[in-house]
Write a protein that binds this DNA or RNA. Structure first.
Length: 447
DNA sequence: TCTGGGGTCCTAGGACCC
DNA sequence: TCTGGGGTCCTAGGACCC
């Protein structure tokens, strides 16, 4: 807990929806819902107009549609949000070098790191007001809500109290009484499961929590969580603002419109995902030792299988083969609704001098003890197989999702965007087959 | 018409080593 | 022959956040 309210928490209001309204004037003043708008999508952000109808983040889009059928439903445009986010973060960095982004629309700022500001409550209020103006200017009209206090905890909670477009500065010394009447769920880290356990111990408000014995709390919620909660309840929080946090894992996952049972299709999808993950690793100059495959069953139970290599890799072929082996070990009977591939135990890509790139990859792969990988069987008479690359004059590059009964279904997508899915006749002359890397042994390293 | 996608952190058990 | 503890690494699952 610091002496001055030097920590700001800045939160852009209904960020994705606000960007869409900024860019499409016809949407201004109207309900806008951004998120997955397919069969199994959920809401990322609802504009304030849509919230009036009870639409909330994380709600299924199906439910949102029934609550607010006349809203505009939009896929997210992450590239646009990222660019806007950077412009906003730049305004914060102009205030202080110590800025910790939590997501595209949220960040902490430690004003004391600048050494320039007077930090009375009134000064901080003025700084926050000016920052909001600067953000609006830099972002093309977006509003932000700002909380300020002597810690991250207080700043974060404060920014939520006067949304949208508000500023709340909590005076030093008033933190514990500020928190006391609130529900325990205002404390970041207390979600439904923890709230339920606390409730069984008679704890519903922070005031209740302040009175609970630490050992009792640890019994209820575990050692790490209990210790930190016991301190946060009395606003004892000296966590620093950290401007550059290391990435710990990189992953891709996809929920399918309908459950998939076909193993060869899943293998093809896992291979795509492995390549996209490896590409993102390379762009970030990272490599990793642990490959994880995630599956979610029809009943929403979720399983992970992971395997750790002897050394880090960013080779798409290595990631793909380990992922494939893990998928082969996974139970997919009954079909799965989600598949994911991730890499963790990350290292900086710059390899140490002991290995060349290829030696390191060989060493990594040697440790995997891969079984013989049969070439994926072709669908007997369609001439296509899942995962095969194709191209089309209208839709561009795509890949085969499935084939049969005289039809072939193609998914047109790039590493960045998910494109349409289209079905063609097998003999459609506009659909051109391309060589698929994994279906061709010449690109595979020898086992 | 249930339940996204990208992450972080924690726990617990087993293997293995000292 | 019997009973140990601590530390680290790996794996699987779960809670939580935006």
């Amino acid at each position: 807990m610091r002496a001055d309210p030097s920590i700001l928490h800045v939160d852009l209001d209904a960020f994705f929806a606000a960007v869409e309204q900024r860019d499409k004037p016809s949407l201004r003043g109207k309900p806008v819902v951004v998120g997955g708008i397919g069969l199994r999508g959920v809401v990322s952000t609802a504009s304030y107009e849509a919230r009036k109808y009870g639409v909330r983040s994380a709600m299924s889009t199906a439910e949102a549609r029934s609550r607010c059928p006349h809203a505009a439903y939009l896929w997210p445009r992450f590239e646009v949000y990222r660019a806007t986010s950077q412009a906003v973060m730049a305004q914060m960095r102009a205030l202080s070098p110590l800025v910790e982004p939590l997501s595209l629309d949220e960040a902490f700022v430690d004003l004391s790191a600048a050494g320039l500001h007077d930090l009375t409550v009134d000064d901080v209020q003025a700084i926050a007001d000016d920052l909001k103006d600067a953000i609006k200017e830099a972002s093309g009209g977006l509003t932000a809500s700002v909380g300020a206090g002597t810690s991250k905890l207080i700043a974060k909670i404060a920014s939520d109290l006067d949304k949208p477009d508000g500023v709340v500065v909590v005076p030093p010394g008033t933190e514990a009484e500020f928190l006391a009447p609130m529900q325990v769920t205002v404390i970041p880290g207390v979600g439904p499961a923890t709230a339920q356990r606390l409730s069984m111990a008679g704890v519903r408000t922070v005031a209740d929590l302040q009175l609970l014995d630490e050992d009792e709390l640890i019994r209820q919620v575990g050692s790490a969580h209990g210790t930190s909660l016991h301190r946060l309840a009395v606003a004892a929080d000296d966590r620093p603002v950290v401007s550059d946090r290391e990435t710990k894992s990189v992953s891709i996952e996809d929920t399918f419109e309908t459950d998939i049972i076909d193993r060869s299709l899943l293998t093809a999808i896992s291979e795509r995902m492995a390549h996209r993950v490896a590409e993102r690793l390379r762009k970030a100059q990272l490599s990793g030792r642990t490959v994880t495959v995630k599956t979610r069953m029809h009943d929403f139970t979720t399983h992970t299988r992971s395997s750790t290599l002897a050394g880090p890799t960013d080779d798409p072929r290595v990631v793909a083969r380990v992922a494939r082996r893990l998928l082969d070990d996974s139970d997919i009977s009954g079909g799965i609704r989600l598949l994911g591939v991730g890499v963790s135990s990350l290292a900086d890509w710059i390899q140490d001098d002991l290995f060349t790139e290829s030696e390191a990859d060989e060493a990594a792969e040697a440790a995997v003890d891969l079984p013989e990988v049969p070439v994926r069987p072709r669908e007997r008479d369609t001439g296509y197989h899942p995962g095969q690359d194709v191209t089309h004059p209208t839709y561009g590059a795509g890949w085969v999702w499935g084939a049969g009964r005289g039809r072939v279904t193609v998914r047109f997508e790039t590493p960045e965007t998910r494109g349409p899915i289209r079905t063609f006749a097998l003999e459609d002359p506009e659909l051109t087959k391309l060589k698929h890397p994994s279906a061709d042994d010449s690109e595979e390293p020898a086992d």
